[in-house]
Amino acid sequence: MPDRPLRAGRRAGGALAGLALLALAAASLLVGVGDLTGAEVLAASRIPRTLALILAGAGMAVAGVIMQLVAQNRFVEPSTAGTAESATLGMLLVTLLAPGAPVVVKMLAATACALAGTALFLRVLRAIPLRARLTVPLVGIMLGGVVGAASTFIAYRTDMLQFLATWQAGDVSTVLRGRYELLWLAAVLTLLAYGLADRLTIAGLGRDAAVNLGLDYRRVVALALAIVSTITAVTIATVGTIPFLGLVVPNLVALAAGDNLRRTLPLVAASGAGLLLLCDVLGRLVRYPFEIPVGTVMGVVGSGLFLTLLLRGDARRA
């Protein structure tokens, strides 16, 4: 039971985060070239785009924090664990083998590949005797590089490089009504993760502590991986890869409020949605009336934030 001022502070922080999110969502609805007098632009494009940003942002941030707890490493997220690259490979393969398949089938194939890739990552990690802090994401990035190279090779041979690019670079400018609804699955999985919050946090204390507390550790890890892989696959299938979000948001939230997911998961989701909205609005304004894809903006903003975090973190430890 946290004491009163702490709880009040948290509540105020939550309210503030909620307000910021609303303001960003409103901005996202209002910014753009199209004329808003017709409700059609709003209903067909702006609202779907804003919802897609909120759902993808929240989902990727939640996927990131789950990854970090399961791998017990602060530098891991779907794009530094081979998950995103594997999902992309899955999209490519299913598009080649069954071009006419409905998007749900494609998403399932991407999820299966993402699961396999992430499981491989964790298996490789287990085989490394010394799990130094930075070795873990390096292993993931290397694994992702290998998988990504395979995708590029296949896409090059089959003349699919352009398709590949749409999954690799996050972009919401083409999101329209009827083409983003799959992302609601990410919201469902975020809720599911909230239901598992205690178990995921305990898993983050390490296998021994989790087993000691009577947790079925392997099952929790398997569930966590399924959630992470599906959120990643859905996001890639609808808006493409969003780098850094799953890395930066959980680290910022952990710094401010810790890792007890029962308390912090809503904040992680809201911050993820807010940051992605902010990046997209920025991308729409910087070269108005032209757009910079949200994935690109996120890459710049995210890497800047991440560098700051890294440097600050080292100063704190010293």
């Binding site: 502590a209 000691n212 507390l213 009577g214 947790l215």
Partner: peptide, 30 residues
């Protein structure tokens, strides 16, 4: 079953380099 045993036996291993950032109160609550 692990959860039955967890009410009879507790263990603390020697390395507790935990990555999760939780408060002492939360840890004890777990």
């Amino acid at each position: 079953p692990g959860d039955v045993l967890a009410r009879r036996l507790g263990i603390l291993r020697q390395d507790n380099g935990v990555a999760a950032r939780v408060t002492i109160r939360d840890l004890v609550a777990f």
